[in-house]
Simulated scan of single mutants.
Amino acid sequence: MSAANIQPHQEKTPAGDQPEGGATLAEIARAAGVSAPTVSKVLNGRADVAPATRTRVEELLLQHGYRRKRGASQQPRLIDLVFHELESAWAMEVIRGVENVARQDGLSLVLSESAGRLTPGQTWVDGVLARRPVGVILVLSDLTAAQRAQLTSRDIPFVVVDPAGDPGDDVPSVGTTNWQGGLAATRHLIELGHRRIGVIGGPSGMMCSRARIDGYRAALETAGLPVDPRLVREGDFHHEAGYTAGLDLLRLPDPPTAVFTGNDLQALGVFEAAREKGLRIPDDLSVVGFDDLPVSRWVGPPLTTVRQPLTEMAETAARLVIDLGRGRRPATTRVDLATRLVVRSSTAPPRG
């Protein structure tokens, strides 16, 4: 091991830790009562800094608006891609889109999962600071104000795909026309002649889920149909939620003749609930999903669904974060790509 590695006081401050503006690294160090190499360790996500010292330095970096000088020591060879869950074909479509763009720029991906949490933990942030990627893409996730400040001070841009909440005007994001998709799905069922239409949304805390439910309500209200709260269920975007909520709807004294689900996985859960109740799709029950995952074409019967351009959304986010990493500011911070209804064999006019 070299002397520099075993004697921290010999460690040199990287050239890339000079700021673009605000306080210098040395001024931050003096204010915190520590050495400049210690501040550099905090900037680089090093673990060998006492928690109290790290917190004090982070607060001063935020207070003084420290911004690392772009590109001097950064090695932009990676894109960090973080999901709240990595369990389905939905995630694979997003990974494929980011990889398509990253490959063209000679970048590699680092995949992370926040174990179902919509905000990744501090361990993940520390890893990002240590890797110093060209940028971060968060899928159905968000960052705390403190985490945003940490990435900003290191000049690591981030983009949110299908944000769980309102990311704010200052955070670049890529989404889809969820409200329009919910409207189109429900309107399709109304035009087929359905009047009792159930809906199984996703988590109410997710903006995309609320928008799809709002589109469902708007279609009913525009058609002069009542929104029956007994036909509205909240799911979690998994098969099991579609199955459980589907059974619940089909056990009603006056069950729906059609169900719109917030995603394809829940639609497949409704398929199983209908089978268990001895119902045939679409003869006895019409079902519409949302996403248009590859499996939707191969289930029996093939699923009518709203196509969400997942791969294109991911490609757009990747191009955006790469541009930000190169210092190019986007013309707009919010991009919404269009959804499209794909009619297959799981929908038909109701009996009678």
Rank of each mutant, 00 (worst) to 15 (best):
Q74M: 13
Q74E: 11
R77Q: 13
R77W: 04
L78I: 09
L78T: 06
I79F: 09
I79R: 02
D80L: 15
D80G: 11
F83Q: 00
F83C: 01
H84D: 01
H84P: 01
E85D: 11
E85W: 02
L86E: 03
L86P: 01
E87T: 14
S88A: 09
S88E: 06
S88H: 03
W90D: 00
W90H: 09
A91H: 06
M92T: 11
M92N: 12
M92C: 10
E93M: 00
E93K: 00
E93F: 02
V94S: 00
V94K: 00
I95V: 13
R96S: 08
G97W: 01
V98M: 08
V98S: 02
E99N: 12
E99V: 00
E99G: 01
E99D: 13
N100L: 06
N100V: 08
V101T: 10
V101M: 05
A102Q: 07
A102L: 09
R103W: 12
R103C: 04
Q104R: 12
Q104E: 11
D105V: 15
D105E: 15
L107N: 02
S108F: 09
L109E: 03
V110Y: 14
V110K: 05
L111Y: 14
S112L: 15
E113W: 14
S114P: 10
S114A: 13
S114N: 14
A115N: 12
A115K: 12
G116L: 05
G116S: 01
G116N: 03
G116P: 00
R117Y: 07
R117G: 00
R117D: 00
L118M: 11
P120N: 07
W124L: 15
W124A: 08
L129C: 11
L129D: 09
L129E: 08
A130T: 15
R131E: 14
R131T: 10
P133K: 07
P133G: 01
V134N: 02
V134P: 01
G135Q: 03
G135V: 04
G135L: 05
V136H: 03
V139H: 01
V139G: 03
V139L: 09
L140H: 08
L143I: 08
T144I: 11
A146W: 05
